[in-house]
Amino acid sequence: MSKIRKPKLAVWKFASCDGCQLSLLDCEDELLTVAGILDIANFAEATRAVLKGPYDLSLVEGSITTPHDAERIHQIRRMSKHLVAIGACANAGGIQALRNFRDVNDFINIVYASPEYISTLAKSTPISDHVHVDFELRGCPIDKKQLLEVVQAYLQGRKPRTPAHSVCVECKLRGTVCVMVAKGMPCLGPVTYAGCGGLCPSYHRGCFGCFGPKETVNTASLAGWFASHGVKRIDRVDAFRGFSAWSDAFRKESEAQERDEGADHA
């Protein structure tokens, strides 16, 4: 009997919370179907079985923070036909990239009694700093529907379709009253990729940027609005220093706010 080879899916982990790969296991209604179409060839969190590469689709979670991982990502790239970086850690260095703004040795000394046992790089960096990435799926965590779209797109040999607009558009679509306009709350919605469905404003709080900076954003204008609504400089800096702190747009803006000493009257 002839048998068509199923595409091989691999899931890899670097420095992260496991939440993005868990999104796949959280697809309760679709998981067994996905497992029927693809061979889950390497996914340590889900299975002991390991099929040899090469892999048709590699999903990579987490950021690069150790010398060993900086080597490992190159091996994974060589074994992968398509490599998709999933989540804010893989795409921007994650919350652990807050070390990049400080001296990592100070951090090691705060957490560990015997710092000589710890092997770590000075900076937490995204996958694309090390190898070619075919697609970046955003989010902290990623949205499981978008993840299924990515898997489906690669099965069909097309590019994944994810929204290019900001959270603001999602609020309008959802009919959520703008928390900036109506309540004067600071919100990263205008500069953050859609994907969450405009979640936080629908819970009466400002967006804090889980899906990272969208393309062509005017963070300076938004920071100016924050300042004019009484947001202190330290909070303006921290607003851009969240899960995508080391993304180009948010890093530059947080550094600009840090330099902007004279502007804070609060």
């Binding site: 420095a15 790969q21 923070t65 150790t66 994650g94 919350i95 070390r99 951090f107 705060i110």
Partner: peptide, 29 residues
Amino acid sequence: FEPPRFFEAFLRGRYMHEVTDITARICGI
């Protein structure tokens, strides 16, 4: 060998209302 992420260090200086959102990121499960 899971790499360290230094939460206790970078929480220093953050505003108290950020802590529940930041510490959630220690574990996705």
